[in-house]
Amino acid sequence: MTPLAHIVALPVRAYRLIFSPWVGMNCRYHPTCSAYAMEALEKHGAFKGAWLAARRIGRCQPWGGSGIDNVPD
């Protein structure tokens, strides 16, 4: 992961540490949005990884889809 991607991943890590235990296992997709964001940042770097994570979070809504949604190559 690039140094900039490490910085972008800090809010995701904070969410996983602080808020994720309270939210529970209610994610519509597999892997969860936070796991997807971390994987996208690792594979694609800070800019494209953040864009992919934002798109995924945007799809996580009552009228969105569900199921398996892996990070594209």
Rank of each mutant, 00 (worst) to 15 (best):
R13C: 13
A35P: 00
I18Q: 12
G49W: 09
P3K: 13
A9D: 09
A14R: 13
A50Y: 05
P31H: 06
M1H: 02
P31G: 03
S20R: 14
W22M: 14
R28N: 10
Y36I: 02
T2C: 13
S20I: 00
L41T: 02
W22P: 03
A35T: 13
T32M: 09
K48Y: 08
G24R: 13
R13D: 14
G49Q: 03
Y36H: 10
M1Y: 04
L17Q: 04
C27I: 01
Y36C: 03
A5S: 15
R16L: 02
E39L: 13
E39F: 08
N26H: 07
P3I: 06
H30P: 00
L4Y: 01
E42C: 02
A9R: 06
M25Y: 07
L10V: 15
S34A: 12
E42Y: 14
R13H: 13
M38H: 00
L41N: 04
A9G: 06
T2H: 09
F19S: 10
M1W: 08
P11D: 08
T32S: 12
H6N: 11
A5C: 05
Y29V: 09
L17E: 03
R16G: 05
H30A: 14
P21R: 06
P3T: 10
R16I: 04
E39D: 14
F47D: 11
L17G: 10
G24L: 11
Y15D: 11
S34N: 06
K48S: 01
P11Y: 06
P21C: 03
G49M: 14
P3D: 12
C33F: 08
G49F: 06
W22N: 05
H6I: 00
